[in-house]
Design a protein around this nucleic acid. Structure first.
Length: 657
DNA sequence: AGATTTACTATTTTT
DNA sequence: TAGTAAATCT
């Protein structure tokens, strides 16, 4: 009898790889088995390659549950999955995808008991981490006013740098913060206490998500389990990974060895967060038998833009040398504009924006990039004056706002009763109870194991009322299943708190209404709280979603412009003293990173690039300084850019107010 | 506990 | 200048 085998998948559409990818890209899609390093220049379609590779693996019959896709943001992962699904006309549900933190979180929920954590551990953000460290400092009896005693923020930074770079605390301090060397033993004690406290409270910070992930992978059976699980591992933006992430990758790729990393060493710009450019430079050395692929065709930019970019990056020593080829037609040479001061710079940008918009380029095809946030302030004023709708990327994140965190702290207390931080936070929102009392009550309740009635009995009148109010809320919402109802219950009292505390209570309350609606799609409080961390979409950005996106101009830091592109780009504040950042001047490594930053900025451009710098600049420290263009400009050949001068009409005074 | 004053220090930021 | 952390006052 003849056997007829049905395919395990069936897609009625055949993906046409050949017509949609160039030979360089095709090679990656078909041949990137085993350790593979794809060096993808800016605008060379690296994301597209990953998407097709994903589709290809799926078509080959690989179960999506055996594929891991790691990206820089969760949003990026979502977008890639959407595109791959459109390609396949299939759902890729079950695929492991997201940031390292996200995947670590998912895995730790199943395995954390191995480290003495329970699966409902809470995650704290940087602000919370700072507060917890502050508690430790006080607990250990340090006087914060001691001269030079490191601030809580610094200690928290040291912690995260140490973890992510896989170095010890001492080394980090000596290298990055030599001025507090004398406090090394103290910092070690504080961080030791910090670690203990987190464990007792069943909470992890962002660093722990990676560190603990690695810890459980180091347990032989667990390491084997995940190494066997992930048949294929795909990593995007590999140039911005750090040492800790690298160690994780080493273990989980050790069985099937199909690890494909994609990145551009010229775009590594996150060293301040322990990203290590050596990860990409050393990849072939560490992963034996690495195939190296190069994507050298640039689809994004005109030859003029690309020429400039090539000229910029040429001056970096530490890199894989490569030259990008443009396929676009010739267009305008990049423009460098010298302006009198920041106000004239703002005027220029605004006027040029309007002109280009009038010529038919929609506002959302243009962007203004800058090195540091303060550089954009004057432009914002100018845009407001001219009624040009704009949007500054990366404001405070939705879930990091005080009022959102306040409400969540009640829910977190219920899910994780050990969570000291959330308990104290929620409790101290009630009249009469501050930091100190919250701490006392916590100790009585959890450490001395007194019961609630007993505690209430011994409290002063004022505090008694506050604590009673708090316990009532907790009792009530414990009975409530749907998270939406629980939030509304908390809001009954929190609403008043908003009016007393904030100067924009209405805004805050409507945010919270929004949060309640968001909670609607979750069956219970636990699911809501635990899954929030992957809710990347709910950022400040969504606020603007009701507006017509095509009519909004984006203002963004260069860092946040990663992976994006626009028809027209304005790079402002390109003056000496500001770009490169003065602090990078005496370190060759940092200086190279600043140059890469310049490279990233220019390569966001599809066709028109305006680089502007103000000559006169007021600083708080030195008063007026006269500045040249950035030192990076003088490294470039004259013909790679054109210079514009600004003329102001003599009777300009009528224009001023 | 909560309000007010004083002192200090100015990148970039994801989860 | 502004925004925050720490100290001091009520």
């Amino acid at each position: 009898m003849k056997e007829y085998k049905l395919k395990t998948f069936s897609s009625p559409f055949i993906i046409n790889y050949q017509d949609n990818l160039n030979p360089e890209q095709l090679k990656v899609v078909y041949e990137a088995d085993g350790p593979s390093l794809v060096l993808a220049g800016a605008g060379s379609g690296k994301t597209r390659v990953l998407i097709y590779r994903l589709a290809y693996l799926y078509e080959k019959g690989c179960n999506v549950r055996n594929i891991l896709l790691v990206t820089f943001t969760n949003k990026a992962a979502q977008e890639m999955i959407n595109r791959a699904e459109r390609l396949l006309r299939m759902s890729l549900k079950g695929l492991w995808a997201g940031t390292f933190h996200h995947v670590g979180n998912l895995i730790l929920r199943n395995e954390s008991h191995l480290l003495g954590y329970s699966s409902n551990f809470s995650i704290i953000d940087k602000e919370d981490a700072k507060d917890l460290i502050d508690d430790c400092i006080e607990e250990l009896g340090y006087k914060k006013s001691t001269k030079l005693f490191p601030k809580k923020e610094l200690i928290s930074n040291i912690w995260s740098l140490a973890i992510n770079s896989f170095k010890d605390i001492e080394e980090i301090i000596i290298k990055n913060y030599p001025h507090i060397e004398e406090f090394i033993p103290d910092i070690k004690r504080i961080l030791h206490r910090y670690t203990e406290k987190k464990k007792n409270a069943n909470i992890m910070d962002f660093g722990d998500l990676l560190l603990n992930w690695l810890k459980i992978l180091k347990i032989d059976i667990i390491g084997q389990k995940y190494a066997k699980l992930f048949h294929y591992i795909l990593v995007d933006e590999y140039q911005d990974t750090n040492r800790l992430q690298f160690e994780i990758l080493k273990i989980i790729s050790s069985y099937h060895k199909n690890i494909l990393v994609v990145g551009d060493d010229a775009q590594s710009i996150y060293s301040f967060r322990a990203a290590d450019i050596n990860n990409i430079l050393d990849f072939p050395k560490v992963f034996k038998g690495t195939k190296i692929f190069k994507l050298r065709t640039n689809y994004r930019s005109t030859p003029q833009i690309l020429n400039l970019a090539n000229e910029i990056i040429k001056h970096n020593k530490k890199q894989f040398p490569k030259k990008l080829k443009a396929i676009k037609k010739d267009d305008e040479t990049p423009v460098v504009v010298k302006t009198k001061d920041v106000y004239q710079q703002a005027q220029f940008v605004a006027q040029r924006l309007v002109e280009l918009n009038y010529q038919g380029i929609p506002l959302n095809h243009m962007a203004v990039l800058f090195r540091s946030r303060f550089q954009v302030l004057e432009l914002e004023v100018e845009l407001l004056k001219r009624n040009i709708p704009y949007f500054v990327r990366g404001g405070v994140r939705f879930f990091e706002q005080t009022h959102i965190k306040d409400i969540l702290s009640y829910l977190k207390t219920i899910i994780n009763p050990k969570d000291e931080l959330s308990f104290k936070r929620a409790l101290s929102l009630h009249r009469g109870i501050g930091r100190r009392f919250a701490h006392h009550i916590w100790e009585d309740l959890r450490i001395k194991r007194k019961n609630i009635q007993e505690i209430i009995k011994n409290l002063p009148k004022k505090q008694k009322k506050g604590f009673q109010e708090f316990t009532d809320i907790i009792q009530t919402i414990k009975e409530i299943k749907p998270p939406e109802a629980a939030i509304r219950e908390i809001l009954k009292t929190y609403r008043d708190y908003c009016y007393v505390t904030f100067d924009n209570p209405q805004d805050r309350i409507s945010d919270l209404e929004e949060l309640a609606k968001m909670a609607r799609s979750f069956p219970n409080i636990k699911r809501f709280v635990l899954e929030l961390s992957s809710y990347e979409d709910f950022k400040g950005e969504t606020y603007f979603s009701y507006r017509d996106k095509s009519q909004i101009l984006v203002l963004t830091t260069i860092h946040q412009a990663k992976g994006l592109e626009w028809e027209v780009v304005f790079l402002i504040g390109f003056s000496d003293y500001e770009f490169p950042h003065p602090k990078s001047l005496n370190s060759p490594e940092l200086l190279e990173e600043e140059r890469r930053l310049f490279y990233v900025a220019t390569t966001r451009t599809r066709s028109l690039l305006y680089i502007t710098y103000p000559q006169n600049k007021y600083t708080f420290k030195n008063g007026l300084i006269i500045s040249r263009a950035s030192m990076f400009l003088y490294e470039l050949p004259q013909n790679s850019y054109q210079e514009w001068n600004i003329y102001e009409p003599d009777n300009a005074s009528f224009y001023l107010d």
